[in-house]
Design a protein around this nucleic acid. Structure first.
Length: 426
RNA sequence: GGAGAGGUGGCAGAGUGGUCGAAUGCGGCGGUCUUGAAAACCGUUGAUCCUAGCGGAUCCGGGGGUUCGAAUCCCUCCCUCUCCGCCA
């Protein structure tokens, strides 16, 4: 949710910046509603004040044993007017709420202007593309040959966009998860956290998936709970409706969870393999920080995600999403894109965002600062560190050998019972 | 799933129709005393919104109702706890 103070102060500028991400803010409709709201709110407050004093007077008069008929009559009349004003006000407030909660975040000044992903800016590259002196195989064929990746079985059990992993590949998948968790807890200062994978609508609203993106979520029939599309939702909502002490910031959490996405709008996209699934594992980094430090934190957090790829010695690049490609809640996002040899292109493997106070205002997540009377919204950030399924794909393809075996990245060897190659009997 | 109890400020806990945003205790903060600390004592201490300000409004789990007036009465939903059942 945008800062209402900012909307009042700088409406045109906000609308202009929203336009750069392709969003038309209904400026006139908003000002109109807000003007009405202001008038009605003042009116109802004054009426209530009158009624309250009147009611109080009745109580006092009764206590003295006086006749209260005329007083009663007067207050009664007030009540009717008040009721109708209150109804008007609540209609206006509801409309305002509907309008404001569907407006995306304002892009940060440093975000490149552009209409879609073709205009994202490459910030830096790490490592080199691997060269192969044989024709590369994609992870689907590699996995099938190793006998560890079975899409048909998953289709049989559930449907399209699922996979069954088994044997060495299943272990490699777990090794990646373990390695990431160890790295972020031991070296980057994150606290390991396990959270519910089903959340209520308030939590999804808090991080911005509701009300606009209900169709992207899986939902339980009887309870109306949602399967989490990312750990961002339950982990960030740890501070919903909380006032944290300034000295407790930053809060840094890492969580390993499955993620569930309906992928409703992506029919025909990435239908082959593990790139786009209804269910995948992710290690997620979340930071709750003081507003003054959120952009430093974004660089730091992005670096933490990059470290995973560097330790795995996987070639990647960092891209700054342009205004038109930003997610709904984000003010600035870096995507990490890993090299996928079979596709001869970079594919997103992590997305690191600063939401500034956008989610915090939706969640009423504030911090208390000594010397300051009012409590301010915190800033929230998150990033994948990393998407495990896609990392598995990257490792398989980048570490493949001509005979279809896969070299285990050095940092994963201890997690693989010291096995150094998968697919060849040792 | 069945039976019962309950949801009040950071925490504990009083409050069953009127001056209650709410006693009291603990905790927190400031002070007195002390070389310092503890103890004791004194003071202070919820959130949100409107307003340039004075000030005002709202909030006792959520929503609705009764009433001139609701923390208090009624309806409904949610949640927590205890016992029983089931269960990794």
């Amino acid at each position: 949710m945008l800062d209402v103070q900012l909307l009042r102060k700088d409406l045109d500028n906000v609308a202009q910046r929203l336009q750069t991400r392709g969003f038309e803010f209904e400026v006139d409709r908003y000002s109109d509603l807000d003007e009405k709201r202001k008038v009605l709110q003042v009116e109802t407050q004054e009426l209530r004040n009158e009624r309250n004093t009147g009611s109080k007077a009745i109580g006092q008069a009764k206590a003295r044993g006086e006749n209260v008929d005329t007083l009663l009559e007067k207050v009664n009349e007030l009540g009717a007017v008040l009721k109708s004003k209150e109804q008007e006000l609540s209609v206006v407030q509801e409309r305002l709420q509907d309008l404001v909660t569907t407006v995306p975040n304002v892009p940060h000044h440093s975000v490149p202007i552009g209409k879609d992903e073709t205009e994202n800016t490459e910030i830096r590259k790490w490592g080199d593309k691997p060269s192969f002196d044989f024709a590369v195989t994609d992870h689907v064929d590699l996995g099938q040959r190793l006998g560890g990746m079975d899409f048909d079985a998953a289709t049989h059990i559930t449907g399209a966009r699922f996979v069954v992993l088994q044997g060495e590949l299943a272990r490699l998948h777990r090794a990646l998860t373990q390695f990431m968790l160890d790295l972020h807890t031991a070296e980057h200062g994150y606290e390991e956290t396990y959270v519910p994978y089903l959340v209520n609508p308030d939590s999804l609203f808090g991080t911005g998936q509701l009300p606009k993106f209900a169709d992207d979520q899986f939902v339980t029939r009887d309870e109306g709970w949602f399967l989490i599309p990312t750990a961002e939702v339950p982990v960030t909502n740890l501070v919903r409706d909380q006032i944290v002490e300034a000295e407790d910031l930053p809060i840094k959490r890492v969580a390993h969870t499955p993620c569930f996405r309906r992928e409703a709008g992506s029919y025909g996209k990435d239908t082959r393999g593990m790139i786009r699934q209804h269910q995948f594992e992710k290690v997620e980094l979340v930071q709750i920080v003081h507003p003054e430090h959120s952009y430093e934190a974004l660089e730091e957090l992005t670096g933490h995600a990059e470290t995973v790829l560097q330790r795995l010695r996987l070639h990647y690049r960092v891209v700054s999403l342009c205004t038109g490609d930003l997610g709904f809640s984000s003010a600035k996002t870096y995507d990490l894109e890993v090299w996928v040899p079979s596709q001869n292109q970079y594919r997103e493997i992590s997305s690191c965002s600063n939401f500034e106070g956008f989610q915090a205002r939706r969640m009423r997540a504030r911090f208390r600062q000594s010397g300051s009377k009012s409590n301010e919204p915190v800033h929230t950030l998150n990033g994948s560190g990393l998407a495990v399924g896609r990392t598995l794909v990257a490792v398989m393809e980048n570490y493949q050998q001509q005979d279809g075996s896969i070299v285990v990245p050095e940092v994963l060897v201890p997690y693989m019972r010291n096995k150094t190659v998968l697919g060849i009997e040792q």
